[in-house]
Amino acid sequence: MSNPENLGYTEEHEWVDLGDAGTATVGITVYAAEALGDVVFVQLPEVGEKLAAGETCGEIESTKSVSDLYAPVNGEVVAVNEAVVADPGVVNSDPFGEGWLFKVAVDGDTDLLDADAYNALTKED
């Protein structure tokens, strides 16, 4: 599965969809989902929480490992995906779609990689 051209990416293997004016939808990439293996637990930030880009804001746990989730942008959490909390396997089956994690009302500028830069990053290893 390739990384969609219309999304922004982070070095922490998260994707950000800025398509919805002012609101960023955040998830993890297929690369991250495959590296983690079956996701069995996600802990998401709470609606209303203020996030600062680069800070940890949750956890994603697979059978074998635990990883932090990082806020990819500054802003306030406006929605979290309860369906993923209830059934974390969705992160593996549809990481760029139904497996989205949370939405942020973006505050200020964003600093994300484009699909080409992210593809280059994940080809290195």
Binding site: G37, D38, N92
Partner: peptide, 8 residues
């Protein structure tokens, strides 16, 4: 091999 598809 760590997994072929889903380890679950």
């Amino acid at each position: 091999p760590l997994r072929y598809g889903s380890e679950l």
